[in-house]
Amino acid sequence: MKNKIVENIGFIIITLCLLATLFFLALIIYFIFAKGISVISWEFLTCAPRKAMTAGGVAPAIAGTIFLTLGAVIFALPLGMSCAIYLNEYNPSGFIVNAVRIGVNNLAGVPSVVFGLFGLAVFVKFLGFGVSVLSGSLTLGILILPAIISASQEALTAVPQSVREASLALGATKLQTIVKTVIPSALPGIMTGVILSIGRAAGETAPILFTAAAFYKRGYPDSPFSEVMALPYHIYALMTEGTRPELQTPIAYGCALLLLAIVLLISSAAIILRNKYGRYYVS
């Protein structure tokens, strides 16, 4: 009898933990949506800011986020995938395998602001790209590089050795085997990693703080070397700079809603893709 009571109390406590967790997270999402939805309009999505950031839209910030994120993927995807393919398919010496593994494991947890410092020292100052789309993209690219390498490696390792043997036994070369069988089989796994990385890159603020972002930029970036506005940074700037908080806050809500919606959609897509692909291979 006593046991039964203890058991019930225990279960009530862990149920409350879950409910509290969901409550807090739902609260955050609810407030952002409730207060942001009225701000969203066609003008908000497609026009540039006006009247010193107190009116108009945030289109340049949306565009900036897209440029930065795409730039990061264009840089990190070929690099990370090649690295994973080389490590997995070409049996290199233990040194490089271990070095990359240690690098990937340890850099995955490094604070994003530290990547910002690296970007500042290397891309902005040393290579002279200045505060620009290019510097920001490269910084974000390095930030997501470990995730792309490890997702690709995991996906390549999951391709059964028998598939490689089947292809080689038919007289395919190593390269044909990799391109025609190994990569297609690993692609869903790699794409999941890439999509999750896109979500991460789109939402990061600290790495672009001193490498790419500008509070206000007239129009869209016209070259890789120009500064950009970006959604996450724009939220920060609206809340901490400027002189009309009562007009800036609603715009910040709109930006937060956009950013949240984009990131949640991207990560949902990644997780749905992964679950679907997982089921397919089990059968």
Binding site: I28, G203, I235, A256, L259, L260, V263
Partner: peptide, 9 residues
Amino acid sequence: GIPSIVYGF
């Protein structure tokens, strides 16, 4: 995956 800026905001 919720961005940290959203928590800050």
